Simulated scan of single mutants.
Amino acid sequence: MIKPALTIWCNGRFADAATRLLVEGARRHRLVWSTVPTANILEEGRPDPAFEAADIALGQPNAAQCASSTKLRWMEVTTAGYTRYDRPEFFDALRARGCVFTNASDVFAEPCAQHALSMMLAFGRQLLPAHRDQLADRSWHFTERRRDSRLLNGETVLMLGFGAIGRRLAALLAPFGMKLFAVRRRLHSERGVHIIPEEKVSSALAAADHIVNILPENDGTRNYVNARRLGWCKPGAKFYNIGRGTTVDQDALAEQLRAGRLGAAYLDVTDPEPLPPSHPLWTTPNCYITPHTAGGRIDQDDALVRHFLQNLAAFESGGDMTDRVV
Rank of each mutant, 00 (worst) to 15 (best):
V193E: 01
H131W: 07
R150C: 13
W140P: 04
I195F: 06
D137N: 13
R168H: 04
A170P: 01
P175F: 10
R145Q: 10
V193R: 13
G161H: 11
A171F: 02
F176P: 12
F123D: 11
V183L: 03
G154S: 01
R147M: 06
L180H: 12
H194S: 15
K179A: 10
L187T: 04
L172G: 11
S139K: 06
P197G: 05
F123G: 05
R168C: 03
G163E: 05
F123L: 03
R138T: 03
M178K: 06
A164Q: 15
S139N: 12
V183N: 02
A171M: 12
A170L: 07
L173R: 02
E190F: 07
D137L: 00
G124N: 07
I165M: 13
L151Y: 08
G166N: 07
H141E: 12
L180I: 13
S139T: 08
G166T: 11
H131N: 04
A130I: 00
L173H: 01
R125G: 02
M159S: 00
F162S: 00
M159G: 00
A174V: 03
D137C: 01
R147L: 08
E190Q: 15
E155A: 10
A164G: 14
L160K: 09
I165Y: 03
I165N: 12
Q134K: 03
A170W: 05
S149L: 02
F142P: 02
S139R: 09
R185N: 07
A164L: 03
G177W: 01
I165H: 09
V183Y: 06
T143A: 12
H194V: 02
M159E: 11
R167H: 13
L128G: 02
R145T: 03
L135G: 06
R125A: 02
R184D: 06
R185G: 10
L169E: 11
D137H: 08
V157A: 11
G177D: 00
L172V: 01
L160V: 14
T143N: 10
R168N: 01
I195D: 06
H188T: 13
E144L: 14
L135K: 04
L152N: 05
I196H: 08
V183R: 04
A130E: 03
R125H: 04
S139D: 10
M178V: 12
